[in-house]
């Protein structure tokens, strides 16, 4: 059996944003009204998940400075995106501090002007011909991941009369099972747009907001090259059950 003696720490639904958070207007019609049905006996269906160690990745999949170029003939500085060069790195651990090795971390973001390279984004800030905005990598043996990118810009969006998203990078992590699956956003320490963002405000507990702040880490910055922001991810803790259920 694939699920013997295993379960995960219960997800705290009061810590995460509720489905219905009316200040974020789109959530109103997209949130269930019925209660979630709790599976008191998680099965192999919930306790297992994909392992991406055999997914073939390109050499620059985690390097957004180099992984997109409208004109592939451009070389050197002419082929680099505009914006503040930065490293985003961190560790994926579970709630007991145990590293989560070889798990897939994916990210996507706007360019330095706050524009996404997406068919549906029509913001007037221009696309950057040298920036795609997507990255992915596996964590190493100790749970570390690392991307190189530019700092995304804030941008306006239709919610209130004048809502702006703080600069952010979307982050997706798989973890050891589909029970640990998580998508979040990394914000930047000190950004004054964070406390007034309706999407950040979907979260009720200020301590939970702090878990989404990437912190400047001068020790990992490269002199005369780029700054570094550290963003650790915590996924649900894995428990062993030692006694038979009878």
């Amino acid at each position: 059996m694939q699920d013997d003696n295993k379960r995960f720490v219960e997800r705290d639904r009061n810590w995460h944003p509720p489905a219905y958070a009316p200040r974020y207007k789109t959530s109103v019609a997209r949130s269930p009204r019925q209660s979630l049905v709790s599976l008191q006996k998680p099965s192999v269906s919930e306790l297992t998940g994909p392992d991406f160690r055999h997914l073939r990745m390109g050499a620059h999949d985690n390097d957004l400075l180099l992984n997109f170029r409208e004109n592939p003939a451009l070389e050197g500085q002419a082929g680099l995106p505009i914006g503040e060069r930065m490293i985003m790195f961190g560790r994926v651990v579970d709630q007991f501090g145990k590293p989560v090795p070889h798990t897939l971390v994916e990210m996507w973001q706007a360019n330095a002007g706050g524009r996404y390279r997406h068919k549906k984004d029509s913001y007037l800030a221009p696309l950057d011909p040298n920036f795609g905005g997507v990255g992915r990598c596996l964590t190493d043996e100790q749970g570390w991941y690392r991307f190189r990118t530019i700092k995304p810009g804030p941008y306006p969006w239709p919610n209130d009369m004048n809502s702006w998203r703080p600069a952010h990078i979307h982050v997706s992590v798989i973890g050891p099972s589909i029970s640990t699956r998580l998508i979040t956003q990394m914000y930047f320490e000190g950004d004054p747009l964070i406390p007034i963002c309706p999407i950040v405000q979907t979260i009720n507990d200020p301590d939970a907001v702090e878990t989404m702040i990437g912190r400047l880490d001068m020790s990992r910055s490269n002199p005369m090259d780029c700054l570094a922001y550290r963003f650790d991810l915590v996924v649900r803790g894995e428990l062993q059950t030692y006694f038979e259920n009878q």
Binding site: R11, P17, D94, Q95, I183, L233
Partner: peptide, 10 residues
């Protein structure tokens, strides 16, 4: 125990 990183919309 650590708290899980909070979720945000995709």
């Amino acid at each position: 125990m650590l708290r899980e990183t909070a979720s945000q919309t995709a």
